[in-house]
Amino acid sequence: MHKEIRMLHKEDYQHFAEMDTGISDDYVGRIFDRLTTGNHRLYGLFLDDQLVSMGGYSIFAGRYAMLGRLRSDRRFRGKDLATELLSHILNGAFKVNGIEWVGGNTQEDNTPARRVLEKIGLTPILTVHGVLSQDISILKSDARPWKQINSVERKWFWLQERYVKTGKVFPYECYYSFPSSHALFQEEEIEKWTFFENEEQTRFIITKRDQKGHQYLHVVYPWNDFSTQKGFWETVAKGYDQMQKEIELEDKDSDTEKSKGFPGAKESFIWLDLTKDEVQRLPQEHPFEVPPAWVLYGVRKEERK
């Protein structure tokens, strides 16, 4: 039986459709074309002319590659084909000009996926819950929201101090976090993010809009004392209210909706990435849904053996 690993193109969709993955209504099928172009790559492992394992990566900020879309045909599992494929993809990603870090995300209880990531040389970096809520009014008091930062210099000061200098993992998008570097913070991205600072100028919050099916106000806060910071929840609520107003306006104007890059407005949520310890720090009667945790794996180019 002939074995081959190659890059996939949109014309390979039928090979994907014929796989028995056990996943009903797989989103990968709906966006297969997009995952083979631009900053996305898909690869397939074929036995003769049958696609039996698939995976790929997406490039962020020209420096980071995130593995994903791992799919295996159930009829061929148990042969380490997924490990062989991902190892090939990892090696290929590091050959792309500029890539310095490759990672992967999987749910904490997905033992087979975690085993594959570890076999190819990735190590766990961070475990977080993406907690969600549509109404945090129960957390609000009469405190004033924090003041919005308009100074570009002040925004860069905070990013440098709390992320770039420390290499702390930054939640770049919902589901996509990366070890910080100057390259991660592109000027055009920062312009889309809203920064807030407390009265004492000792803490800051970033809120940014994201869409992963639903609309999200992605809240970034690099400390674990949110429950004791006066005005924190009021600031988050203010940002969420503003996002909902934007969505309502876009729903009335489809042209504006398309130009913003957020088509098909659906339900909206507040999203915070919290560690297990931070989840425990939430008030007992908190309004957040706490889904299963995700584990971020990764390896730097210079760390590879």
Rank of each mutant, 00 (worst) to 15 (best):
D210K: 05
E161P: 00
V116H: 02
I206K: 02
G98K: 12
G121D: 10
I138N: 07
I138L: 08
I138S: 15
L126K: 14
L132R: 15
Y176S: 04
R115P: 00
W101H: 13
L126H: 07
S141V: 01
T207L: 08
I125K: 13
T127S: 14
P179A: 10
T166Y: 00
K147L: 07
E197I: 06
P145R: 13
G98Q: 11
L159D: 04
E191S: 10
H182V: 11
I206P: 00
N224E: 15
D142I: 01
T106R: 09
A113E: 07
V116C: 09
G98S: 11
K192C: 08
Q186M: 10
K212E: 14
R154E: 14
L217C: 01
D109Q: 13
T111E: 12
W156A: 09
H182E: 14
Q211A: 09
T202W: 02
L184Q: 09
T123G: 02
G213P: 07
W223L: 08
V169M: 09
D135I: 09
A143F: 04
H214L: 03
H218L: 15
G103A: 08
E100V: 15
K168L: 15
I125E: 12
F157M: 11
N224M: 03
A113N: 10
H218Q: 15
I149M: 08
L132E: 14
S133R: 10
D135H: 12
T166R: 03
G213E: 11
F195C: 01
K119L: 03
P145S: 13
G213S: 07
R114W: 00
N97Y: 08
I125H: 12
E118L: 03
G130M: 04
I190A: 02
S180M: 09
F226R: 09
S137N: 12
G121Y: 04
Y216C: 06
H214D: 15
I206C: 05
E118F: 00
N224G: 08
F185Q: 04
S181D: 11
L122I: 08
